[in-house]
């Protein structure tokens, strides 16, 4: 499943993702109706770490720049290109799903970026989770202060809770899922938006 398909699936479960458009040809871009600035991403279910291979271009401000970006990415990978509106937010988090050999599907929540990479500040629960489990997950995070509006960067706790329970529901209804990475999930004052999504099915 490529990123666009993954995001369509998420949207069905009420998960917020940036507005996006898939361009197969350069000409397609004329029909694109998105608000600049945009991000362009290589669209492939083979490439898992897009930015490592030069598959992501940011801050696209005009149609001409979009066309240039298309040529660069399509020229390099021969794939369609996903254009999305860029979103600003206060805190980056990560949400994931794995299939544990003992307990089955489990959902993970943590703070994104360095907090995940260095401090491994994440917590797991076995799916299905209820609202109370989701609340407990937020409490489990060592850096939870950051989720409580640290230095005036407000985030919406309810949006995290509802996102976690939605992902749990998605997995229950699609048991052939092997793993999910939603990284980053951007928290704004009122929303939680999934900027990048990978869903692997068996």
């Amino acid at each position: 499943m490529n990123e666009y398909e993954a995001k369509l699936m998420l949207k069905k479960y009420g998960v917020k993702v940036p507005n996006g458009y898939v361009a197969k040809t350069k000409d397609d871009l004329k029909n694109m109706n998105l608000k600049y600035p945009l991000v362009a991403k290589v669209l492939s279910d083979k490439i898992l770490h897009k930015s490592d291979v030069g598959g992501v271009l940011l801050h696209i401000k005009t149609l001409e720049e979009a066309q240039e970006a298309f040529e660069k990415i399509n020229g390099k990978f021969s794939t369609p290109v996903l254009f999305e509106e860029m979103v600003n937010g206060n805190v980056e988090t990560i949400i994931g799903v794995i299939k544990d050999p003992t307990f089955g599907h489990a959902i993970m929540f943590g703070l994104g970026g360095i907090y995940t990479e260095v401090y491994r500040d994440v917590t797991f629960r076995v799916i299905p989770i209820n609202r109370r489990d989701a609340e407990d997950m937020i409490q489990d995070i060592r850096g939870k202060k950051i989720l409580e509006g640290y230095r005036g960067k407000k985030v919406n706790r309810e949006a995290i809770i509802s996102l976690l329970t939605s992902i749990s529901k998605l997995v229950v209804e699609n048991p052939d899922i092997e793993g999910i990475d939603l990284n980053p999930v951007l928290l704004t004052e009122d929303k939680a938006i999934v900027l990048d999504a990978k869903i692997i099915k068996s």
Binding site: F124, V126, G179, S202
Partner: peptide, 28 residues
């Protein structure tokens, strides 16, 4: 618990490598 398979390439797979899932299950 050892882990592997298809999801090992995911971030979440690497982070669940210890018994973090068991820990969550106990709390639930």
């Amino acid at each position: 618990t050892s882990r592997g398979g298809k999801a090992a390439s995911l971030h979440t797979g690497a982070l669940g490598g210890n018994d973090a899932v068991a820990d969550g299950a106990f709390k639930q």
